[in-house]
Design a protein around this nucleic acid. Sequence first.
RNA 1: GCGAAGGUGGCGGAAUGGCAGACGCACUAGCUUGAGGUGCUAGCGGGGCGACCCGUGGGGGUUCAAGUCCCCCCCUUCGCACCA
Length: 843
Amino acid sequence: MRASKACYAAPMSETNDRAGEERYEPAILEPKWQAIWEERRSFVATRTPGKPKFYGLDMFPYPSGSGLHVGHPEGYTATDIVCRYKRMRGCDVLHPMGWDAFGLPAEQHAIQTGTHPRDTTASNIATFKRQLKSLGFSYDWTREVDTTDADYVRWTQWIFLKLFQRGLAFQSEVPVNWCPELGTVLANEEVIDGKSERGQHPVVRLPLRQWMLRITAYADRLDAELEGLDWPETKGKQRHWIGRSEGAEIDFSIEGHDATMTVFTTRPDTVSGVTYVVLAPEHPLVAAITTEGQRDAVNAYIEVTKSKSDIERTDLGKTKTGVATGAFAVNPINGDKVSVWVGDYVLAHYGTGAVMAVPAHDERDHAFAKTYGLGIVPVVRRTDGKAHDFDASAFTDDGESTVLRSHANVGEGVASAEVRKQTVAWLNGAGKGRAKVTYRLRDWVFSRQRYWGEPIPIYFPVDCDGDPRLDGAEFKVRFDKPIAVPESELPLRLPELEDYRPGQDPAGPLARARDWRFFQQDGQWFARETNTMPQWAGSCWYYLRYVDPRNVEEIFSQDAYDAWMPVDLYVGGSEHAVLHLLYARFWHKALFDIGVVKHAEPFVKLVHQGMILGENGEKMSKSRGNVINPDDVVKSHGADSLRVYEMFMGPLEAVKPWQTNGVEGVRRFLDRVWNLGVAARKSTSNDVDTETLRAVHKTIKKVTEDIDGLRFNTAVSAMMILVKQLQALPSVPQAAVEPLVLLLAPFAPHIAEELWERFGHADSLTCAPWPTFDAALCEDAEIEIGVQVNGKARSVLKLAKDESQASAVEKALEDAKVKAHTDGKAIVKIVYVPGRILNLIVK
RNA sequence: GCGAAGGUGGCGGAAUGGCAGACGCACUAGCUUGAGGUGCUAGCGGGGCGACCCGUGGGGGUUCAAGUCCCCCCCUUCGCACCA
């Protein structure tokens, strides 16, 4: 009878450990193998000359207080499978893990409880680590990094200094959402109707001194060098975010002023259709050119604008507002005088903060012109000769020129692209314009008024009489004279604080650590920067530190870099598609420019795992009460079941709901594998019949190809099919089960190791050679092919792979079901694709 | 509005242009079991007693043959949203 039956039913009286011997008990064997791997240092990454390398990277987690959720192991299992597979294929593998441990929650917890963020972080890390280890991931834990660790912070600060020295880190006054009540700067999303999302406290837009990183200097390369990366749709998102846009800057002189306003446009072909121009409310020219008569109206408008958040200002649904300055500008292409307006639909931070308005060919200008009764002058017509109703809407597509009043002397009927070229050439010659590429990407605000982050390694001279640390001392920090902390003094550590609250001062909590902040040198007082770095800083380069994490001399050795970089596979959530992945690429390129790294791009292949939803199809969250805790799954069914289930749920990239019954199904599958192993050891014969051998080879082929393509769901399915087939054998040969165990090993490493050991192998299978398949055995000599009559499936025939058409048709016509549809009719056409289909067309 | 990915049984999902629904879950029946929320066997898209007919969001088209390719439309999810 069934092997499974024997194993459950028949007690082996001579074993005193019957359960352990005969039953699949993940709770026993999973910890056993985890201990063995650790003891044998199975996953410590080392390089052997001549062997290929593989760097499989997970996005390291923020160790939150709530521990791991089932979303984490999804991506982690995927990379672990590939890494284990690569080891079996003879690669040296680097598969590290660490902690993105700076961040707000630990600081908030500190404010509420007084617990030092370091303590909170340490205990959260301990929990995460225990949970990750219980899942049997093949991480090289000797390379663990923690972004809050002083040895790590040292190099984060070191990179900052490199950026500072190259002018890529600088200070700037930028308007931010400052909430005095909360004592911090808020992100735009955190501000609703001018009040803080949490607590409803008033928020003001106020210019604050901030550290900025000049990511815009890399805009072109960040855009261009996406080409060639094996990344998903993320490339498009980054391109959009960078927002490269080709156009021209055009100068409009202001009548009666010795000033010009420069606009950026992508449509220089429409300059002759300009009927007014608009400045952003923040534009410096506004005050200078506004006429007396309009001054009050303009000032009032600017005041209203200031109180609006970015989100309100950019709400597309609202009608566009603006007010005339009373001034006039001269259109350089035809000398027309057009009115100058102020309108908040013009963004101060994009282009030049000023636009030329062509209502005939731009929807926004059209809407504005309709509101204020401004002119609409068409200068582009459709190429198909059809008329366009310019009163109703703008015509924004390219077309061909109408008769233009243009000094550039562009003719009629010229294609828009050509008009652009000629216009820019003329403007250029006249010194009134130039071709220009603009990017939407803005420089990166890099400072936070927080405690739990990397201190920025900069200090400033202080003007003061006496000791600035004393209560009530008067002093002035010379922010205009930033000085880099010497590399030899890194890491610059955080001071101990009793109170982590931000306080009223935009300088942040570190400003209260006066003994830390101020120091004296040669009689001169200095003050340290009291802003800290944002959480992104540590994650910008952690993948580099993994190659040489304990190096105290350098950020990493060149040998270590050469051994492992670049990252071959990077898996993580798509929520990091733009920010983290763009920031990291930026740092990498900056490091590339100073010769620290040798590749222009760090991550060769990128994959985003899809979110796992709760059983009700909603996002998992405590408030929805649909959270699945991986610890519970490990306890009830084991880590292997969890791993295999998460891979079996569907394509890695897909969003998919959790089904507890599904885990049970996978558990049954592993039970069957176990039973096969037990049956194989009892089997008297080790002969594998041809049919079984074919099945084994087909499965090897399928699983191998599916792992290479990251199609883990269908790989699991293939193994299930093989198990079913092996189960049906009267006697299960070990020679057929062993390849299955090897195929299963990357997915369910614990059960695989246990069976492997029981099969008598002394060495762990972590480096056992991956099974190979014989292509000839993967193809059946006889294949069932569908037989259609007039395109409708009527029957199935077993034919030789290369059966001749004549023979195939002859056999088909003998088939009763086919006959029923062909009798008495003439065959007018035969479509025969050997091994695939036979289609008889009859009349 | 723009961009991307999708729409296949009761559910998760499979299908180089070639028998739609692999594999798993749930469900049904039978066997096993002292019992079972176990194990095994069989069935399981819809309609029809049946031969058959209809079925991959909707509508057209290409083809001997379409879930798959082309055109139009609808819907869902996720990004981005006045970027001149």
